[in-house]
Design a protein around this nucleic acid. Structure first.
Lengths: 124, 124
DNA sequence: CCCTAACGGTTACAGCCGTAATTTGACGTG
DNA sequence: CACGTCAAATTACGGCTGTAACCGTTAGGG
């Protein structure tokens, strides 16, 4: 349960978005984008198996890999860590920082506003 | 210019918040919190020197360490990567995710709202 | 001035990460 | 049934990270 590393996360993304895949399919999907050889992808799959982030089941002679860790869990872990470490666990400072460094499009702003409004009514 | 690691970041935080410090002061500040011995802190300081994240100047016989990398730069690097990797570079999904997993206090919500309002008027 | 204690820098070492080659094991074919 | 083939797992290896001991140099007390 160590922690999914940067390289490993690309394998997970493939499985999260495309569902259970064979090794071959994973290689096809993520290999070219990352410029990884087949061997590298295999290694990452096995590391993820060892970390219990994936399970392999054997179907029609081939191994099929499926995520055990959900993307939701992963995203939560990553972003919570960052929030806590850098912004005192509060989201407003993060948004402020983001706004200072990347222009928020009017569209993004309005989506944020809607979201906030929703949270407000939800909450009381 | 490699990249400031997790352990190293605690040293940086001490310097960012307290200003230039001697090794002794860094040890006092961050050692107990992280349960690190003096030697460990020394190592981290030297790694940061090698990475050009810190500079040391010699004042009154003692070495004073000061950050070269600003906290702003560091925070930007860290959070930009996460936003891009996990939320397609957009902040609204992050806020939504956060809201789903940690209750936003009414106070946080109102701070967000104020922030958004400010961004809106700024923008046009 | 010299000696020693403290300080700062160097070395150490195991585990993880990125990248990959090599070996093992199962499966079909002659 | 032996053999080759192809996929899966094991091994490799250099660099970084976390954790720390050790050593050379410098500064202050005698």
């Amino acid at each position: 349960m160590s922690k999914i590393s940067g390289a490993e996360s690309h394998i997970m993304e493939a499985l999260w978005t495309r569902g259970p895949l064979t090794a071959e399919e994973i290689v096809q999907t993520v290999g070219p984008a990352q410029e990884w050889g087949e061997a590298t992808v295999k290694t990452l799959i096995n590391r993820l198996l060892k970390k219990k982030a994936l399970a392999s089941e054997r179907a029609a002679g081939r191994a099929l890999y499926r995520p055990i860790v959900s993307r939701e869990e992963y995203v939560t872990g990553e972003s919570q860590g960052l929030l806590d470490r850098l912004f005192g666990g509060q989201i407003a400072p993060l948004v402020a920082h983001y706004a200072r460094h990347r222009a928020l499009s009017p569209d993004e702003i309005s989506r944020l506003k809607d979201l906030i409004a929703e949270l407000e009514t939800d909450d009381e």
